[in-house]
Design a protein around this nucleic acid. Structure first.
Length: 913
RNA sequence: GGGCGAUUAGCUCAGUGGGAGAGCGCUUCCCUCACACGGAAGAGGCCACUGGUUCGAUACCAGUAUCGCCCACCA
């Protein structure tokens, strides 16, 4: 017995703690510029500083770690760049909530104190996810941990901003943007989530001015915005209305007169009444129509989404109406307006209507189209090269099904609103001269300044000392910060030291693979491609691997509010990190979401334990010398297993090259459990007992093969493999640093594989026989075997000892006529015949039933094949080898059927006697 | 409204122009000196439906149904 002791069951906890820390302490994952290998770089999708590890992170980072560990073992110069995102709105919301609980607010603190408070929060409780990633085994280069608000990255942000501005791609202007009335900031188009909503369609009658008999009825879902109307539109070709174009209507509840315009883009004649009110300040399509017809934009909402109408003149609008709705949020104002319209007789119809509502992706508040001055990135000149990079294959998207998604979105992309009216983030590097703008700059009660849309910004990398135009020294900095995704877009190069031409940038950029979920393809991936191409002149990464979303067992999105989250930390604690990682890898098949149920993880926990016990077995049997022989001179079982191992290594490598983590996982699972453990370890047990050369050779193969298995498995199950590898005979400090096994042509042994097929068929058939006769597993039995194929029979004779061990039998290999037929149940597997000696206590009826059913199945299949072969068009048109295969199979089936029939006959004879 | 994907064993999913697969679950027998988180043997499926292409379709094509996802300012 070996001196190494292993518990009967694998206990991940202690192992994981120990290795996680050791790996980090020894800096195995540190990327060195001196490393001779060709670079392989991954940048982590930086988790939010507010985040804690959820199952999506676990999947995303497990896959990245598999890739990076695999490439590291292959000898590549690997860098996995870790980091965190400052997550502007999300983080600000977290701290604001805390302040609220303390009875304070961000306004009460003021900007500087508030930002200081967020930094304090980050130092104290931000970034716990980093520790969780380490526990997951993520072999990032932790020395290089980056944060999007680090000075280096902030410098990159300013640099990009200034250069975009210099190139005319960054501009400020008043546009209709998506406004979150709760976060009090603008949002980009993709930060708005659309949800179906059951709304109503209101039909409102507008009297035509100067004609008491004519009215125009418009249909709208938002009557409360009517005070912001500046026109009414009809279709220019609509015979009902076209004669009215150019005339005016009176806006109900007011004395205001609105022009009637013809607009074929805005108006759908089939919809509603065919007439539309135009509210340019509160609807995107109305905004565009307003541009076309040069209509005034009348904003009637404040930043909180409340009606801001008090300024409207009494002469124009009924003051009782104003008092009724002023300061009300839109949803509360709507019924009030509805009532007023009804009283005025202007509301003719209200019908149910399905519509979509835009909601803030951070807080789910309904967003308002809102007119305000914002900064925008002119996107078309950036999108064009980004489209080409994917079209020309310089960036490969895997699975490629998402390419069209990407291209479609890119081709319709609109300018990117990048300014946010929050405090946590990269403040925009733009200043305004007080002297130049004079009274146009107004100060609010809270001290903040209102910068008019047409103000002239001074954009600079650092705060300018004086206004370049007038020399004025009183400069106000733009209060807005940039969209969080702006700094994320620079991540692949900003983390490597850009804008400086660093050695890191030269060595590790472009990065190799980006691993990400579909949910941030547009938010992040597309923008990285645009920015990378523009500012480094090269793609930011070669491959984009898009993995699925993890859903719960019912297929629903996991969310805290639904209570259906699977907490990866809990799973790691209960089943082990390796089990979780392996599960996630095994389910990462392309193009499909992952429905994760906890039972699945249990299965792979068992797999980990199986490997643990295989190691136990091996370690128990290592006493004595080991002798490495050339593969061809090794015992049969060794030759067969090495051939299969070589096959598995090739398979796993190919799968990983294709990002088929699922395939790689199942190939490993199948090889290790069902070939290595079930067959190989059973086959060699007798050899290990022997004190012969065979034992020495087998012990050597055992160590050699298991070492290779651990190494192939290591990227998937790092902890278990490290722990076992350390206990096995080994050279080196860590399995992490060992070479990934490569295919060994001398291991490939087709003869051994063919021989094994014969052996396994015999053993399986023998076991079936034992089961048919209900012979207990412990009981030895006498078997007879033969084959119609001479080669098969020779193999069986050669492997007789193995066959006897695996089927727990004494085996006689003799031709069928020589079998003692009265006491032997005959079974067949194609050419092979196996006879099981019948020794009393036989449940004849049961056995007969089973045999009869099997014979019927075989006969049915044979007749199906027969019919097919009788079909002339098949035999004449099908390829010759296909036909030959069918014929061969039919012969086998007939043989089998005959033998089963004779077994059946024999059994019934026994029943009669 | 547009686009994409799915539909295969009780569940979760692979897969291929020529004999239906895996894991989990289930049944039976076994605590055999690595492992009961185990071993052995099983049961279970008109591969969603309808047409077409083909000697041959679960696979390729078209349509239908159901489900899901992404995109979208028809008021």
């Amino acid at each position: 017995m070996s001196q190494v002791h292993l518990d009967k069951t694998y206990d991940p906890k202690a192992v994981e703690d120990r290795w996680c820390q050791t790996w980090i302490d020894r800096r195995y994952a540190h990327a060195s510029l001196d490393h001779p290998g060709s670079p392989y770089t991954i940048v982590i999708p930086p988790p939010n500083v507010t985040g804690s590890l959820h199952i999506g992170h676990a999947l995303n980072n497990s896959l990245q770690d598999i890739l990076i560990r695999w490439r590291r073992m292959q000898g590549r110069n690997t860098l996995w760049m870790p980091g965190m995102d400052h997550a502007g709105i999300a983080t600000q919301n977290v701290v604001e909530k805390q302040l609220q609980a303390e009875g304070s607010s961000r306004a009460a603190l003021g900007r500087e104190a508030f930002v200081a408070r967020v930094w304090e929060w980050r130092a104290r409780s931000g970034g716990i996810i980093i520790e969780q990633l380490k526990r997951l085994g993520a072999s990032c280069d932790w020395d290089r941990l980056r944060f999007t608000l680090d000075e280096g990255l902030s410098r990159a942000v300013r640099e990009v901003f200034v250069r975009l501005h210099e190139d005319g791609l960054m501009y400020r202007g008043e546009r209709l943007i998506n406004w979150c009335p709760r976060c009090l900031t603008a949002l980009s188009d993709i930060e708005v989530e659309h949800e179906d909503h059951n709304g109503k369609l209101y039909h409102i009658v507008y009297p035509v001015v100067g004609d008491d008999t004519t009215t125009l009825t418009v249909a709208t879902t938002r009557p409360e915005t009517m005070l912001g109307d500046t026109a009414v539109a009809v279709h220019p070709d609509d015979p009902r209305y076209r004669h009215l174009i150019g005339r005016r209507v009176r806006l109900p509840l007011t004395t205001r007169e609105l022009p009637i315009v013809g607009d074929s883009l805005l108006v759908n004649r089939e919809f509603g009444t065919g007439a539309v009110k135009i509210t340019p300040a509160h609807d995107f399509s109305d905004f565009e129509a307003g541009e076309r017809h040069r209509l005034p934009r009348l904003s009637i909402l404040d930043i909180h989404g409340r009606l801001d109408v008090e300024g409207m003149r009494a002469a124009e609008v009924d003051q009782t109406v104003i008092q009724d709705i002023a300061q009300l949020p839109v949803l509360k104002a709507r019924p009030k307006v509805e009532l007023r319209l009804k009283e005025a007789g202007s509301l003719t119809k209200v019908e149910d209507h399905k519509m979509v509502l835009g909601k803030c992706y951070r807080c789910k508040t309904v967003v308002e189209p809102f007119l305000s001055p914002q900064w925008f990135v002119k996107i078309a000149p950036l999108a064009e090269p980004a489209i080409r990079a994917v079209e020309e294959g310089r960036i490969r998207i895997v699975p490629e099904g998402w390419v069209n998604n990407y291209l479609g979105w890119m081709r319709e992309i609109k300018d990117w609103c990048v300014s946010r009216q929050i405090w946590w983030g990269h403040q925009i590097p733009a200043w305004y001269c007080r002297a130049c703008h004079g009274s146009a700059l107004q100060q609010r009660a809270d001290g903040s300044w209102i910068i008019p849309p047409d103000a002239s910004p001074i954009v600079a990398r650092t705060a300018p000392a004086a206004c370049p135009r007038c020399g004025g020294t009183e400069l106000l900095r733009d209060p807005d910060v940039l969209d969080t995704w702006f700094s994320s877009a620079l991540w692949p190069f900003s983390t490597l030291g850009w804008p400086d031409e660093t050695a890191e940038l030269r060595r590790f950029y472009p990065t190799s693979t980006l691993v990400t979920g579909l949910d941030i393809l547009f938010f992040w991936v597309a923008r990285m491609i645009m920015m990378g191409l523009r500012f480094t002149g090269d793609v930011p990464f070669r491959d984009v691997y898009i993995h699925a979303l993890v859903r719960d067992a019912e297929g629903h999105k996991m969310s805290k509010s639904k209570g259906n989250v699977i907490d990866p930390l809990h799973v790691m604690h209960q089943y082990g990190t390796d089990a979780l990682r392996f599960t996630l890898a095994s389910m990462a098949s392309p193009g499909r979401d992952i429905k994760l149920a906890e039972e699945r993880i249990e299965g792979y926990r068992n797999f980990a334990n199986k490997i643990w016990n295989a190691a136990r077995f091996i370690l128990m049997n290592l006493e004595g010398e080991r002798e490495g022989l050339p593969p061809a001179s090794r015992p049969f079982a060794d030759r067969w297993m090495l051939s299969r191992l070589d096959h598995a290594i090739r398979q796993v490598t190919t799968s990983l090259e294709q990002y088929r983590f699922d395939q790689a996982a199942s190939q490993l699972y199948h090889f290790i459990w069902h070939e290595y453990c079930d067959w190989y370890l059973e086959l060699i047990k007798p050899a290990l007992q022997a004190q012969a050369a065979e034992a020495r050779a087998t012990r050597h193969t055992l160590v050699e093969s298991f070492d290779a298995i651990l190494r192939v498995l290591h990227p998937f199950m790092p902890y278990l493999t490290e722990e076992i590898w350390q206990k096995m005979p080994h050279e080196g400090d860590s399995i992490m640093l060992q070479p990934f096994p490569t295919s060994r042509p001398e291991w490939d042994d087709k003869d051994a594989e063919t021989q094994f097929e014969v052996l396994s068929k015999f053993v399986t058939t023998a076991r079936l026989g034992r089961a048919l006769l209900t012979i207990p597993p412990g009981q030895r039995v006498t078997l007879y075997g033969t084959s119609t194929d001479a080669e098969e029979l020779a193999t069986l004779m050669q492997l007789r000892p193995s066959a006897e061990v695996l089927s727990k039998a004494t085996l006689h290999l003799q031709p069928l006529p020589d079998w003692p037929t009265e006491r032997v149940l005959r079974l067949a597997e194609e050419r092979l015949s196996v006879g099981v000696a019948v020794e009393g206590g036989l449940d004849l009826d049961k056995t007969l039933g089973r045999v009869a059913k099997q014979r019927q199945d075989v006969a049915k299949e044979a007749s199906r094949l027969e019919a097919k072969l009788a079909n002339a068009s098949f035999t004449s048109k099908a390829p010759g080898d296909v036909v030959a295969e069918h014929e061969e199979r039919l012969r086998s089936l007939r043989h089998e059927a005959a033998i089963l029939a004779s077994s059946e006959e024999q059994l019934s004879r026994m029943g009669r006697s």
